[in-house]
Design a protein around this nucleic acid. Structure first.
Lengths: 346, 346
DNA sequence: TTGTAGGCGTTATCAA
DNA sequence: TTGATAACGCCTACAA
């Protein structure tokens, strides 16, 4: 299919009557090569339309300059923001980025891990699927000291650098805010408890309640996979409880959106009848009506940090046994969905 | 750094006292190998923790089973949806997906092309940057018959398979709808005219007007890069015109959102004073207030199609000289932002 | 049905 | 400062 074969360093070498090694070194700006020959080689390389074959180089150097990224779903603003940040840093550092999505399916996550290992990526950045409860599929990397960086949905039992926001504090602030707005019957739509972030958000919620001498709403703490339809089911369930909620803290914006849409349709007023806080600050949160209060999660910056960390690990600039969990700054953004009229915010 | 060296097919061969080629063949399910030895080899491969080295295989076969994807911005719902679709199909077909973002910068787009070529991707899926007016940076691929598939922001002068929506018809439907709502002074916020999609959307707009015997709003047809701030500038400019617009057709939802926010703030009513139609059906369009009328663009499906096409091209299942432009179905979604009360839709 | 030999394009080592 | 050689791990004619 390919017309002319690619020019290789051997072709250049032959042309100039030098050895392939000299060409290789010259093109890599190896200082051993004299300036004169280096210039000449580069010149001829351009004339001959030489294009380095990274694959061959990768095989030889056992380095691919490629980062693998596994996310649950590419097409989700938070995750695509993280990817965008990763790409930004990776590109500048000369790394390619290979993206895969687990679709929140543990099987697929495992298979992706296998594939990334087979293609010898230099490092992996990962946010676990909703189903992930074990980390054995990642031993492939940890056993061989291939750097692994987690973000957002981190796994407790893997020793690695991790990047999260303060989920506990997020849950605490969100719930405390609802309490300050006068709410007393606060429900929670949460994620699977195998993931630390959802445990933390739940615990923040519980803590805020207990600090205020309140109880969680009986039967009002639900856990699901936080999709749009999960949110829809959840709100229908909550609105059947003997004690109706006067507020809901949702563990993501997606479910909060389902709630808004359902309540709007039922002519239940937000925030007067039910106040609402989400989590993540997806772009729609700002413009939905009523605008959704939420916890800001700096996805792009998390991506920048993840890429920076993994590249430093790959370059051996970071201790291989000494891991840190980086907690990114977060913020409660108060909008209409939780702002009771007449209530003054301290 | 790496502790134990990886097991190779040679290790397995030595273990079983067969040749490496036999191992290679067995692992590839080559029918020449007897079932018995194949089973034994696979067995031992697992026991020894063998992991194929794709890099070596790639070098030998001159195939990487990798698709390169270049988009303007990963973190944009339409593009991340396309990527998601690409990944879905690619994964099932055994391809990895390498993603890069041009940030709408032509320089970066060129450099990415170089890098993708250097890493010998088997095919490239591309949506051009706002700045891209020439296609020479893609000769790298076209000269060597490396498949190239364009989507959305396609370049006219490249012979390749392309996937678009009917942008002309989108512009036509959007504008005609505004006319049917009684609007007569319709402005347009469009994209750079070097890109066919924005020319087509503009032409659709013009056609609808002329069919109705109307003129474009004087000074009311603007072109910019369609960011949030571009939209903001544009609406400010439009609201200073001697003849104010009573409707605006925006070439994307992002600028339409800027318009909504600005008008809301100025207490200008939508759609009573200014009706609005966007393009793309970003997720926020449905929930913003007022909900934004828009042209639906099936990003995920476009990604599926792009991946399918390029993989078929890679596998030689498609003629290499015979290219098609696939026009995906699109649809006008009418929401509050353009729905004048009392007006009945035909 | 299996083995042998050579090469994919680059780089590391050693020698000159 | 440069060259010769071998090797990275796999695959594929060709031979047996």
């Amino acid at each position: 299919m390919n017309t002319k074969p690619e020019t290789t360093i051997h072709d250049i070498a032959r042309e100039l009557d030098v050895s392939a090694s000299t060409v290789s070194r010259a093109l890599k700006n190896n200082p051993l090569i004299s300036e004169k020959t280096r210039e000449k080689i580069k010149q001829v390389a351009i004339e001959m339309g030489y294009r380095p074959n990274v694959v061959a180089s990768n095989l030889r150097t056992r380095r691919t300059n490629t980062l693998g990224v596994i996310v649950p779903l590419i097409n989700r603003h938070f995750f695509s923001s993280v990817i965008s940040g990763v790409e930004e840093v990776a590109y500048k550092a000369g790394f390619a980025v290979t993206i895969s999505q687990s679709n929140d399916d543990f099987q697929k996550e495992s298979q992706i891990a296998q594939a990334l290992f087979a293609s010898r990526v230099d490092g992996v950045i990962l946010s676990a699927s909703m189903e992930t409860i074990t980390s054995q599929h990642l031993n492939l990397f940890t056993d061989r000291n291939i750097p692994l960086v987690f973000f957002d949905r981190v796994l407790d039992d893997v020793a690695a650098n991790k990047i999260v926001v303060d989920d506990f504090r997020g849950g605490l602030l969100a719930t405390r805010h609802l309490i300050e707005q006068g709410c007393r019957h606060i429900a929670h739509i949460g994620g699977p408890l195998n993931l630390a972030i959802y445990r933390d958000r739940l615990n923040g919620y519980l803590k805020a309640l207990s600090q205020a001498g309140l109880q969680p709403l009986p039967e009002g703490v639900l856990h699901n996979r936080l999709t749009r339809s999960d949110g829809d089911e959840a709100i229908r369930q909550l609105m059947k409880l003997p004690q109706l909620p006067d507020a809901i803290f949702c563990a993501n914006d997606t479910t909060a959106l389902s709630v808004i849409i359902y309540l709007r349709q039922q002519k239940i007023r937000i925030p007067e009848d039910v106040a609402l806080v989400g989590f993540s600050n997806e772009p729609f949160s700002e413009v939905v009506s009523p605008a959704l209060s939420t916890i800001k999660q700096p996805g792009y910056e998390m991506g920048l940090k993840a890429a920076e960390l993994i590249i430093r690990q790959i370059n051996g600039e970071l201790s291989a046994n000494d891991f840190t969990t980086y907690v990114m700054p977060t913020e409660l953004i108060i909008r209409e969905s939780s702002l009771h009229q007449g209530v003054v915010i301290a």
